[in-house]
Amino acid sequence: MSNINRINKDLFRQRGKLVSIILGFHILAIVLMMLYKKVFKVTDPTSLTGGVLIAIITGIVLLVISVIYVFDSSKYRLIPISSNGLYFSNILSAFFAIIYLLVGEAIIYFGANAIFPNPYDQMMIRDFNVNQYWFQIKLVIAFILGIMLILVGSVVIRLLVSLIGDLLPIKKQTFATVILTLIVIWAVMVPFNVITANTLILLGVQEVTTSFSSIVRMLNMSLFILVAWNVVLTFLNLYLLNRWSEATR
């Protein structure tokens, strides 16, 4: 087994465990809620969408922390593997964890709806079940790319904060790091917003109307921009990781 496969195996197992715990908690929460309603004879319908949203947000936050931990930890930085190999293993395992989380949440959502039907979620499912399969697929891809951008962007912020912190003539302290992180986030968001806005204008966003074809066009532009930013930030991460980054734990 090559070194890259060895680390993949470990990271996939770890991320799988993380998502399984989130899904497990979500199922437990639904079961407890339904038991509560049954015991106390609560008849008001309860939507399951909020729970799905909370589980997905929790999953994304924990995955971001987990991805950043890998680059900070001596445990991973000492493995005989290139920085590029470590980066792609880390991001790839996070990508599959996101897919697992989304598929798992979809199964829980539809399953819970079948067992405990409620009018709110049935309406949601009906509305989403239009015959535009290609559009729906693109929507899901855009959602996944958006989550990936959050992950890759968080790594950029972390690596930049670490690099700038090392260059400054002050030792790292929690307060200074928080301030520095906020400054870096702001400094990264400014060019990000300007470039994204100008690219959208160049792609013709101003001609977009409320018609379905216009919405599809807008979605295509978003997909293009998401892919482009993911690629650009990946290159930036690889540069920072190879040249400057140090293990801190």
Binding site: Q14, L18, L62, I65, S66, Y69, S73, S74, K75, R249
Partner: peptide
């Protein structure tokens, strides 16, 4: 430091 490096989420 194992305790620090093996910390997870």
């Amino acid at each position: 430091s194992l305790k620090s490096a093996f910390k997870d989420v």
